[in-house]
């Protein structure tokens, strides 16, 4: 849809600007949320590094609550349970899990890359709308100045 911005009235431009601002805010928060999710996956992937062969059978403290720990031994360094969404958990070995996280991180990167250009486009559009608005306001001012003496019907 091609619309000549200069043909729109000031209230219309105002509305358009508001809409663009909303869209920009929405896209920005979306990117922020995607980045948060991505960081979580990166952290989870990193913590898999602890599950090496040399750590098998070692003692560790398991947090039962955030302030109480019980001692335990790391009996299995091969398998982990992964939350794949909607309440489903899958038992995977460490290699599969690393692949799983890599998939998730790549997926999120792709999503962010998809949103980024849209956000830039909206920014550019908003800028254009603001420019046209300023132009219109100036036009209006000079018009009012020249018509100040003439009475209107």
């Amino acid at each position: 849809m091609a619309v000549n911005l200069t043909e729109l009235s000031l209230p219309q431009l105002e509305g358009l600007k508001g809409q663009l601002e909303q869209e920009i805010e929405f896209l920005t928060t979306s990117i922020g949320q995607l980045k948060i999710a991505q960081t979580k996956y990166v952290e989870a992937k990193d913590s898999l590094g602890v599950l090496g062969k040399d750590n098998a059978g070692k003692e560790l403290l398991v947090p039962l609550t955030s302030s109480m720990y019980v001692p335990g031994t790391l009996s299995d360094v091969e398998h982990v349970l992964v939350d794949v969404g909607t309440g489903y958990y899958v038992e995977k070995n460490v290699e599969e899990t690393k692949e799983f996280f890599k998939r998730k991180i790549d997926f999120l990167t792709k999503q962010i890359e998809k949103i980024q250009p849209a956000l830039q486009e909206k920014h550019a559009m908003k800028q254009a709308v603001i420019e046209v608005m300023n132009m219109k306001i100036q036009q209006l001012h000079s018009q009012q100045a020249s018509q100040a003496g003439t009475a209107k019907a």
Binding site: G85, G87, V90
Partner: peptide, 22 residues
């Protein structure tokens, strides 16, 4: 979300055990 779960489940074989959180 369900599509993502479906994709994940399709990648699994009988080696993997699936648990449901109830």
């Amino acid at each position: 979300e369900n599509n993502i779960v479906k994709e994940e489940l399709d990648l699994l074989d009988s080696e993997n055990t699936v648990y449901k959180l109830i």
